[in-house]
Each structure stands twice: as C-alpha cells, then as structure tokens.
C-alpha cells in the first residue's frame, strides 16, 4: 500500500516562510507568545513528513471546511431567517460545548438551508447545515439537539477528513514536498490548489452524494446521543426523531434517506438511552422552540 505523503510535507518543503503573515494572529497578552518568531525555521526538515489525515492541521481543516461549505451553499440556498439561524446556532454550541471537541479552529457555525429535502451535513472544522425539510420533522429542542449533536460528532471524529483520498494528496506532496522555495511560487500554488480541489471534491461527494459508511453514521449517533446527554438534553429524543423520520421515509422523500442507514436500524444501534442525572424538562425549551421553528 502506498504511504501517504501528507500535507505537511508539502508545506514543510517550502523551507523559507519569511513571507508569512502571522501577525494577524493577535490575542491576549497572557502566556508566552509565538509572535515575531523566525518562521523560516518551521519549514526545515523536509526529510520527515506527516503521516495521514490526522496530521492535517487545525487551520488546514478549517480551510477545507470553508471550501466544502462554499460548495454546499452553491447547491443549496441559505435560509434567510435570522431568528431561526441564531436559535439553531445556540443549540449547536450547547451540544458542542459538551462534546469531546468543543474547540475547533474558529468554532462551530450553523446555517439552515432553504430546501424541502430532508438532510443535514457537517463539513470539517465546524460547519453544520440543516435543511428546512429536516427541521419540519423536528418537534422539540431536545430533538434538535440530538440532530445537531450527530453533526457535531461527525466533525469531532473528523469523518469528513477521513474521506480524502490518499492518492490525491500523495501526488501533490511528492511534487511540492521537496522544494525549498522562500514562498509559494505560482506553480506551487497551482499544484496546491489542485490538491485542495481534489480534497474538497472527495469530501463533498461523500457528504452530499454518497454518504458516510454505516459505521460512521452509527458512531455519530452514539457520540451525538452522548453529547446531548452531557449537555443535559434528553438523549432519547434522537431516537424519537429517527422513528419519525422513518415514517417520512415511507412517503418517498430523498435527501438523507439515500445516504444514511435505515432509521430503524439506527434506533436499534443506539440501544437504551437515559438522561443525565441533572436532566429536567423545561417549558422554556418548548416555548423558545415553538417561537423559533415556524416552518
């Protein structure tokens, strides 16, 4: 099997990085800072390379996620409903905060899509999309938390990054990994962009066209239910929603029914779920859900 020559190698190969603008990374005065350092040192050592998707850096994941999202938003029109988007954003941040990956490079962001299709997507780095059709099936904030937590789990477990074909990266890294230019030349940028395009295509195809493997969907359900539970939502609400979605599948709608395992099987895989000890029902959650989700 071919060894992956990962992204970092290609970048490490560009040994002179003095043209970088790291001054944009501003922050507080606490702690030791890494500003004004000689970043040319970063690129030394082209003989060693990163080994796989797990070595894709936080910032690289973010830029992959942005481009995947730009493609999703080219296919699906964003819903212009500030109240609903803000509400979904809060619920997503609530479950993300309780996850094992509350911090991504620039945080989690949610966009409702103006589509009757029943679907939801998660792009690497923290970008989450839920269609209007999907939201119509959701009947409570706890169910919405379960749906969003499932998407947070795809991001936390880096399912999107895992879909990037090794071969695509290998060729680019081979070309670019050995040069010691002071900054990216136009040719290198062209080659990097080709590698980037391939990576984006792989992730978009998996998200929108083919769907993740069953194992990854079950894993996202399992961890999503746990995140919802740890955020003190009712984790069983995800099962309630999936059961309702199964009935909608009988109506012949497309979307995620083409790309996800049968809802009944997902419910079965989830097994028994009970809320956290501090869980309590809340009329406020019901009120604000009804106020925000009017589709």
């Amino acid at each position: 099997m071919k060894r992956l020559l990962p992204l970092a190698a290609l970048l490490a190969g560009c040994s002179g990085l003095q043209n970088l603008n790291i001054g944009g990374y501003t922050g507080s005065s606490m702690g030791q800072r890494l500003q004004n350092v000689d970043v040319t040192k970063v690129a030394k050592g082209v003989n060693q390379i990163r080994k796989g998707f797990s070595d894709i850096s936080e910032s690289e994941e973010y830029y992959i996620g942005r481009a995947v999202s730009a493609q999703v938003l080219a296919k699906y029109k964003p819903l212009n409903d500030p109240g609903l988007n803000a509400y979904a954003q809060k619920v997503a941040q609530a479950v993300a905060a309780a996850s094992d990956r509350p911090s991504t490079f620039k945080g989690y962001h949610v966009q409702i899509l103006d589509s009757a299709e029943i679907n939801a997507f998660a792009a690497p780095g923290g970008f989450i999309f839920v269609t209007r059709g999907m939201l119509k099936l959701v009947k409570s904030e706890d169910e919405l938390a379960g749906v969003l937590a499932h998407e947070v789990a795809h991001i936390a477990k880096k399912h999107g990054l895992k879909t990037i074909q090794t071969a695509r990266l290998t060729s680019a890294f081979t070309i670019l990994g050995s040069e010691a230019a002071k900054s990216y030349t136009p040719q290198q940028i062209g080659q990097l962009t080709s590698a980037f395009e391939g990576a984006i295509e792989d992730v978009v195809n998996k998200l929108v066209v083919n769907g993740y493997s069953r194992d990854k969907e079950y894993e996202a359900d399992k961890f999503g239910a746990q995140y919802a539970k740890d955020a003190h939502y009712d984790p069983a609400a995800l099962k309630t929603f999936l059961t309702r979605m199964e009935k909608a599948a009988g109506a012949g709608v497309g979307g995620m029914f083409k790309t996800h395992p049968a809802a009944a099987k997902r419910v079965s895989e989830l097994g028994s779920l009970s809320p956290a000890s501090g869980y309590k029902k809340s009329s406020e959650r019901g009120r604000r859900f009804s106020e925000a989700v009017q589709l």
């Binding site: 944009g24 040192k41 910032s59």
Partner: peptide, 30 residues
C-alpha cells in the same frame, strides 16, 4: 517554532497551524 532545535526535524501540524501555512487563505483564493 522559531527555535534552533527545529532545524532538521519536520514541521508538525501544530507548527503549520501557528505559521498559517498549508491549505490557507492564499490557496483558498486560488
């Protein structure tokens, strides 16, 4: 990052993030 002992060793994912290199804004623009 920036220390002399980095010479001869590969830049890690962490160092790439701090340097803002790799798939970055320049690549996104292209």
């Amino acid at each position: 990052l920036g220390s002399s002992d980095s010479v001869g060793s590969a830049a890690t994912a962490e160092e790439m993030t701090l340097a803002g290199k790799g798939f970055n804004a320049q690549v996104e623009k292209s």
